[in-house]
């Protein structure tokens, strides 16, 4: 085990009588990329805000850098970089001003901020936009600026709440590359996402969150190994509703999941499984053979798909 940066035990957040985060446990170690994967309302942001020492914990224990967020919030925040779910940039100021101002909150002298702004503009690929007002930037540029802003204080731990939501695939890949570089530099990253591929690409370890609880924890490979088979055969039949049709596939693979528009067969080898399906006299309208992923883990754990 490495040095733990964040330790949560029975961590709970309630808003009035509503429990947003329900007694969760996790430990995040220095140098890793730790993910929180879950659908809307799972409690990801609430958890991030407690770790970020902006939202008081309701119950349980939380230590960040070994400190108590309720008592030492200022000190914790001074060592953190936070990319909130909403950018909340100063739209009417320039890109450079946004970075400079943020540095001033951390009491950095201008002589330190200046070279760091240049470096971060380069890192976020915003050098050409340095004097543009934020309101003139695209969504992807704003997101990169929000990430650059979080890095102005050279934080040991960076919290990224849905860093790529709402971006097109190309912009997402640019961001993934940047986040990967951050990790290479030794930063510890906490990332929330509801994109499976993002979690698989970036995270060393992750927890699957649903309804305020942690449904499973492990590396992407471990989770797939534990909760799914190596391959999946997706079968679409020529029917309006696939409900109740899983009986037709009895004996094929170790498990089936029925969605409205297709049936998923969890199997060792998708090719062989397709032959078995044909041998039963079933004529699928369409089939997809693929490797199992975190989507399947989530489906198995919660019985629901995690739609983007």
């Amino acid at each position: 085990m490495g040095e733990p940066l964040v330790e949560a035990r029975n961590l709970t957040k309630r808003f009035g009588t509503f429990t947003a985060v329900d007694s969760v446990d996790f430990t995040i170690e220095r140098g890793e990329v730790f993910g929180f994967l879950g659908p809307n309302g799972a409690g990801k942001s609430s958890t991030m805000r407690m770790i970020g020492a902006t939202s008081p914990i309701t119950e349980g224990q939380l230590k960040v850098f070994g400190l108590d967020p309720n008592a030492d919030g200022r000190e914790i925040r001074a060592r953190l970089g936070v990319v909130p779910q909403e950018d909340m940039l100063d739209e009417e100021l320039t890109v450079t001003d946004n970075l400079t101002i943020y540095g001033r909150y951390f009491s950095l002298p201008r002589s330190v901020i200046k070279p760091r702004v240049d470096e971060l503009l380069e890192f976020a690929q915003l050098t050409e936009k340095r004097d543009a007002k934020v309101e003139a930037l695209s969504g992807g540029m704003k997101r990169r600026l929000t990430i650059a802003r979080a890095l102005i204080s050279n934080p040991e731990l960076v919290i990224l709440d849905e860093p790529t939501t709402g971006l097109d695939p190309q912009a997402r890949h640019v961001l993934w590359d940047r986040l990967y570089r951050l990790k290479q530099r030794g930063a510890t990253l906490i990332i929330t996402t509801h994109y499976m591929d993002e979690a698989e690409q970036l995270c060393d370890r992750l927890v699957v969150m649903d309804g305020g609880r942690i449904a499973a924890e492990g590396s992407p490979a471990e989770l797939i190994d534990r909760h799914a088979t190596p391959e999946v055969l997706e079968v679409r039949l020529d029917v309006d509703d696939h409900a109740g049709r899983e009986a037709d596939f009895a004996g094929i693979g170790s498990r089936t999941e029925v969605l409205a528009d297709r049936i998923l067969l969890y199997v060792e080898h998708a090719d062989e499984a397709l032959q078995e399906v044909r041998a039963k006299g079933i004529i699928p309208a369409a089939t997809v053979k693929r490797r199992a992923g975190l989507e399947d883990v989530f489906l198995h754990l919660t019985g629901r798909t995690l739609v983007d």
């Binding site: 925040r77 936070v82 909340m88 940039l89 909150y105 009491s107």
Partner: peptide, 14 residues
């Protein structure tokens, strides 16, 4: 509207 206060809460300020 701009939520600048909310953004600043993520810094050492309170």
């Amino acid at each position: 509207w701009r939520k600048s206060y909310v953004a600043v809460m993520n810094t050492p300020l309170d």
